Amino acid sequence: MPDRIALVTGATSGIGTETALGLARAGFRVGLVGRDPERTRATAARIRATVPGAQADGFVADLSVQAEIRRLAAEIRERYPRLDVLVNNAGAIFDRYGATADGIERTWALDHLAYMHLSLELLDLLRAAAPARIVNVASAAHRRGRIAFDDLGHAANYSPIAVYSQAKLGNVLFSAALARRLAGTGITSNALHPGVIASGFASGNGGWFGLGWRVIRPFLAKPDDGAATSIHLATSPTVEGVTGRYFDARRPVEPSARGRDVDLQERVWAMSLEQLGRQDIAR
């Protein structure tokens, strides 16, 4: 067993794959979470072939479904005695409204609630490895986000950008609220903007939205550039003990005013716990 173990969600393409490769090169045993079994196996094999001596394990789950996250966490606990780094990276943007098996709008479920749910499920492994790090891939899109408490799924007036920005704001709020609760445990929680990257996160959409993404994608930054800040937060000694911050281009920057709002952080934390059917953790 290597000295350090990391888990990366959304690891079968784009930023997630590059993050997993970077962590393998840094000497971590990497767990890769993907939705498609064949792509997950292929990505693990690619990492083992690319990085001499690398250990890469595949885990399959649909992170928009709460029962799948609970099952995944149980499998990870069976495989690993501890977890040094958790990179919550999986996410997508959808061109039309859809609800998950839990009855929750799928962008909020996948891009926000899954981060919170998996982090809480794996806290015991992170505590076993402390000092440990939770890295949440948010976005500068959080700056235009607002939490629509009266219509969280925007079912009445759906907008892909609005629900995506709301979920990314959720990431920033969650990271800060979790950091307060983990103070003194040796586990840090930080969020980041990866840049505007030519990833596949919008590739499943059709219509004008999907076409627009395909048109601009060749002009965007490469996935390895997008992974740089995630890898920095997971590995750099310069951020040891740094928690509750938001990073862009490997530097701490201030998030939006809403992202810094402690009352909003606590309100969204409480609402998210209710959606997950979970109790709060001790501060």
Rank of each mutant, 00 (worst) to 15 (best):
E75N: 12
V137N: 01
I76R: 01
G200H: 10
A24I: 07
T235I: 14
E105M: 10
P223L: 04
G186H: 06
M1C: 11
L192E: 03
R283F: 14
A167T: 15
V215I: 15
S165Q: 11
A227D: 07
G170L: 08
E18W: 00
I15H: 01
A270T: 14
F149P: 08
V65N: 04
L123K: 02
F247Q: 00
E121D: 06
V253D: 14
Y97N: 10
N89P: 10
G98W: 07
R29P: 06
T100G: 05
I5R: 03
D95S: 15
S13R: 12
L32R: 02
P81S: 14
V8P: 02
Y158R: 09
D3C: 09
T243D: 07
T40K: 00
D151G: 05
Q55W: 07
T100M: 08
L110K: 01
L21M: 10
T17C: 13
A138N: 02
G195V: 05
G16P: 07
F59W: 11
T238Q: 14
A257W: 13
A191Y: 05
L173F: 04
V239D: 12
R133T: 08
A54V: 04
I197S: 05
I147H: 10
T185A: 11
A128M: 12
E68K: 07
V30Q: 01
D225Y: 02
G27N: 05
V87I: 12
L23R: 04
R180Y: 05
T229M: 08
A128T: 10
P223F: 03
D84E: 11
V215E: 01
L32F: 13
Q66V: 07
H232T: 12
R48V: 15
L173E: 06
D248A: 12
Q279F: 11
L86P: 04
L21A: 03
S256Q: 10
S256N: 10
G53T: 12
A73E: 06
A179R: 01
E38T: 15
R127W: 06
Y97D: 09
L273H: 08
V33Q: 03
R180H: 11
V8T: 08
I76W: 05
D263S: 13
P81C: 10
A99T: 14
F94E: 09
R127Y: 14
V253K: 11
L173D: 00
A202D: 09
A132K: 02
A176Y: 12
L63K: 02
G244N: 08
N88C: 15
T238W: 05
R258D: 11
A74M: 08
G53W: 10
R260L: 14
D124E: 12
D102F: 07
Y246G: 05
W213T: 14
Q55K: 05
I197T: 13
A177Q: 06
L123D: 09
T19S: 13
I197K: 02
G184W: 07
K168M: 11
V172S: 00
